[in-house]
């Protein structure tokens, strides 16, 4: 067994202990969070294209799940999933995933596109909230660095689409994304994804 697995094991064990005692009706953080792994990978370390959620900040994961649950954020599937969990369960998952380590998504990227995206990121004012390379400076802003490009592109398509529900926190990006071409959105996605 390599060190990484060992480390993971200890994290899992520590989390399990933290969740004990689990009396009937109590929420067990590992139990509810492990249901997500079929789509997001073990401990949230997705191998793509679904987003990496391992190491996601606690307040952001919680607000994302609440937005999906309440229908204030468009999704292909997450709304149908999030409505199945109680607020307490979502709280427990947010703690579980925040305790994992962010693992940048391994993916094939276009360096030229990424280069263009880097310039756009600086020119269009994205860095103001997303920092110089997309690593979240605040816990309410998601980490873009090393996220899967496909997912990021879809997300920006939704920001640009006036018919897609997006949370009020994302509204600032609607006009910004509407003023960018499809290729520019894709470039931005490749830029963020390439920040491993």
């Amino acid at each position: 067994m390599n060190t990484r697995n060992l480390l993971r094991l200890f994290t899992a064990a520590a989390l399990l202990l933290a969740a004990v005692p689990a009396m009937a009706g109590d929420v067990d953080a590992a139990m509810v969070s492990n249901t997500c792994a079929g789509c997001h990978g073990t401990h949230g370390e997705s191998v793509g294209a679904a987003p990496v959620i391992a190491g996601m900040s606690e307040p952001y994961l919680k607000s994302a799940m609440m937005d999906y649950k309440e229908g204030t954020r468009y999704s292909t599937i997450m709304g149908r999933i999030a409505r199945g969990y109680s607020d307490e369960e979502i709280e427990a998952m947010a703690g579980f995933f925040a305790a994992q380590t962010w693992t940048p998504g391994k993916q094939e990227l276009d360096a030229e596109l990424a280069g263009k995206g880097g310039a756009l990121h600086a020119d269009k004012g994205c860095a103001m909230c997303h920092g110089p390379v997309g690593t979240a400076p605040s816990p309410t802003v998601p980490n873009l660095a090393g996220q899967f490009a496909e997912y990021l592109y879809y997300q920006m398509r939704d920001y640009a689409n006036p018919h897609a529900a997006i949370p009020t926190t994302a509204m600032v990006m609607r006009p910004m994304c509407q003023n960018l071409s499809d290729e520019e959105l894709m470039s931005l996605a490749h830029f963020y994804a390439s920040q491993q």
Binding site: A22, M23, D26, T35, I77, I81, G84, E89
Partner: peptide, 12 residues
Amino acid sequence: GREPPEPSYVNT
């Protein structure tokens, strides 16, 4: 020797 946790299941 612990009580099992409350189960949670999913399918897609």
